[in-house]
């Protein structure tokens, strides 16, 4: 800290201040400062120790197979004590990417609708509803998924898609209901609030003058959004997308409940699968062998590192964008 946190603690205090600021007062100030600083430091310590503890817990798995072969082995079979993380990595990636493909355009649409299109009152209502979407606990989404979404997909949407697009490996039958597709759909619902609220922040940081410049040139409403809003928030929207991805990668309960929990790599989106988070949720409490526990911890460590990288990139991006826009304003 270059600037002293305690301004009264410098050499040339006036006589008046010297009378008022007795030594014990200064001491109390310093104590308070160090208490808050120590507590803040503990928070950093938590993050660091989280990484270290997970590393320690997964050391057995790392030693027995090495990280590279761990993530490139495609069999995960606790009965035979074979632990290859490829199927769960695959499941996580596919379900997350699928959810992004659905959620990203929708979220941008919602953000544009609320910020640029709708009358203030309607915009506020929609903004509120989307925020509520973020408040629903994950397990409730899972419950809704199991009893509402999955049956609907199994009975209607998936058979229809299979009959129309079944020649394409991604849409091969049979229609299980549970699987990557359902997980992707539910995930998209859960990350829409994240992406749309960050995008709204980014859009709101664009000065009014930009919009008026486009309108004054004779742009239609959509052209105004494209020219003044979307064109200059590409980096911010990318950051929002990454934050959404970060959430999707780590989301557990809803996915666990609708993905079918089978660690396999199958081309069809309708097939059951397993993700990194769902395999931990399903097996950790019941795992008995040390290698099994350690392998699950390693999956957790990889998840930790991956979400850390995605989120930190996204954070930095969004920070930079909103800050530079504020300066322009």
């Amino acid at each position: 800290m270059k600037s002293s946190p305690l301004p009264m603690n410098n050499q040339n205090t006036s006589v008046f201040e010297k009378i008022i600021l007795r030594k014990d007062v200064r001491f109390a100030d310093r104590v308070f400062f160090w208490i808050t600083r120590l507590i803040a430091l503990l928070l950093v310590g938590l993050l660091v120790s989280m990484g270290l503890f997970l590393l320690n817990a997964s050391s057995l798995a790392i030693r027995s197979s090495g990280i590279v072969s761990f993530v490139s082995t495609s069999v995960w079979d606790p009965v035979k004590e074979v632990y290859g993380a490829l199927p769960v990595v695959y499941g996580t990636l596919v379900s997350s990417v699928l959810s992004l493909i659905i959620a990203f355009p929708l979220s941008i649409g919602i953000a544009l609708f609320v910020n640029e299109l709708a009358p203030a009152a309607i915009g506020r209502i929609v903004g509120f509803l989307v925020e509520m979407l973020a408040a629903i606990p994950s397990v409730i989404y899972g419950l809704w998924g199991v009893f509402v979404l999955v049956p609907f997909l199994r009975e209607y949407l998936q058979p229809w898609l299979i009959s129309k697009l079944g020649f394409f490996p991604l849409f091969e039958g049979p229609a299980y209901g549970v699987g990557l597709f359902s997980a992707g759909l539910i995930l998209s619902l859960m990350i829409i609030p994240t992406i749309s609220s960050i995008s709204r922040e980014v859009f709101a940081a664009i000065p009014r003058g930009q919009r008026e410049a486009a309108l004054a040139l004779g742009a239609t409403r959509w052209e105004m959004m494209k020219l003044s809003v979307l064109e200059s928030s590409k980096a911010g929207m990318f950051g929002a997308m990454m934050l959404g991805l970060g959430r999707a990668l780590g989301e557990t309960m809803a996915v666990t409940m609708v993905i079918g929990n089978r660690a396999q790599i199958v081309a069809s989106l309708f097939a059951p699968a397993q993700t990194m988070s769902s395999v931990i949720a399903n097996e950790y409490a019941e795992a008995t062998s040390d290698l099994h526990l350690s392998s699950l911890a390693l999956v957790g460590l990889i998840l930790f590192v991956v979400t850390f990288v995605t989120s930190s990139l996204a954070r930095l991006l969004v920070w930079r964008v909103t800050r530079s826009q504020r300066k322009l304003k």
Binding site: G209, A213, A214, L215, A216, L217, S232, K234
Partner: peptide, 30 residues
């Protein structure tokens, strides 16, 4: 607005566009 142009108090070129693209932005819209 196509017939009545406007220049604002604060300069507001489109930040994502080049000098050239800024000038022809209105034509491109048309």
């Amino acid at each position: 607005r196509r017939k009545v142009g406007m220049v604002f108090q604060k300069p507001n070129p489109f930040p994502a566009l080049s000098v050239f693209d800024n000038v022809v932005a209105g034509l491109k819209l048309a």
